[in-house]
Design a protein around this nucleic acid. Structure first.
Lengths: 193, 193
DNA sequence: AGCGTTTCTTAAGATACCTTAAGATTTTTA
DNA sequence: TAAAAATCTTAAGGTATCTTAAGAAACGCT
């Protein structure tokens, strides 16, 4: 399917769009194709687009002072990825966004999107919904991180994101969950045996 | 100042409201007064209101299986508090919301707010902004929790929320930061001396 | 098919943080 | 203003998780 059609369908599962609006919305996005390991957003660049994953798998991560990578988010088909802080404040990104597989991403520029909010209020509603849910999800993650053991976090991750678990290397899951790959490996051994 | 006026001013710092809209918005909220320690939302109840703190200080927290409290959020004058998951999904809350001081809260019912989104699009925009920023903030907290030591988290908290630090007991800050009160006490001793 | 690269595992020693328990201090209430 | 309740501190011993280093397995390219 044409990636833009995928996106329109994605919107229409959540909000009402007339055919005219849908066409108008579709024209605002453009397609970016990424090879495996290609970086879509580098630290230091300002993120000026909202990004929808039509196909593939990406991660966003940041590198701390000791050059350790911390994975902030994985994203697969149907998800949105961004360094939202950079996007909203127009400051240099502290995150990288990188393709983990060959991927197709649809982008809309901030200025275009802001116009679209006025032209098609349903799109503003879509993003309100989206951020409400995203907020709940990330708050839940924070709470898990604070109150659960590494083992509990890992098994919750597996049951919640089985599709992601099978597409990304184990050491990245460890990073996402805030533990070392060695420790995760030990956990798995303990409970698999 | 009348609490409703405080709220209108809060909106007007972020979005444009005609006088007519402002009056209309103001009428949708009602005032709730809370004594210290009073609970505004209990676990098990469905949260049906969005809540703005006109005055005072509250916390939201949840109790895990071992009956340990984990503080999710503090809120003071000008902040919003809610169990958003319960509000959005109409399922029983897993969080408590409790006043830590005498407080005045302004509430709007979900149904009223949903109508208001259609009547006054600027209000929908306000909440889009709000959740965008809230998402960024809580993502930042997650990252801190995952990548920093307890000591780093504590000093960041102090510099970021000096106003809150001075209003809430130290053991609650420990809970918010995901450490034991004993450990926080030891940290403070180490670095104060 | 073979070689380099990426990913996963193992294990020993180190450390950050927790648990328990008790006493000291501060705040609230009667 | 005294008693009760809430909060903070101290200290000893325990556990979860990390660090380092090395080798094994899987994957990807020529």
């Amino acid at each position: 399917m044409d990636p833009i059609d995928t996106l329109i369908q994605h919107f229409r599962e959540r909000i009402v769009l007339t055919d005219h609006d849908a066409r108008c919305v579709g024209e605002c996005f453009h397609v970016v194709t990424l090879k495996k390991k290609e970086v879509l957003l580098h630290t230091g660049e300002v993120s000026s687009h909202m990004r929808y994953i039509a196909e593939g798998c990406l991660r966003s991560y940041y590198m701390d002072e000791e050059a350790r990578e911390h994975i902030i988010q994985f994203g697969i088909d149907g998800w949105w990825v961004n360094d939202l802080y950079s996007y909203l404040t127009r400051t240099p990104a502290k995150q990288f966004i990188q393709a983990l597989e060959h991927s197709v991403v649809l982008q809309i520029h901030r200025d275009t999107l802001n116009q679209l909010y006025d032209q098609v209020p349903a799109i503003e509603r879509f993003f309100r919904f989206k951020f409400e849910k995203a907020y709940v999800a990330v708050q839940d993650r924070t709470l898990n991180t604070l109150s659960k053991t590494a083992e509990e976090r890992y098994f919750e991750f597996r049951s919640k994101y089985r599709d992601i678990e099978q597409r990304v290397p184990q050491y990245m899951i460890a990073s996402y969950l805030g533990m070392t790959p060695e420790f995760l490996s030990a956990l798995r051994k303990k409970t698999t045996t």
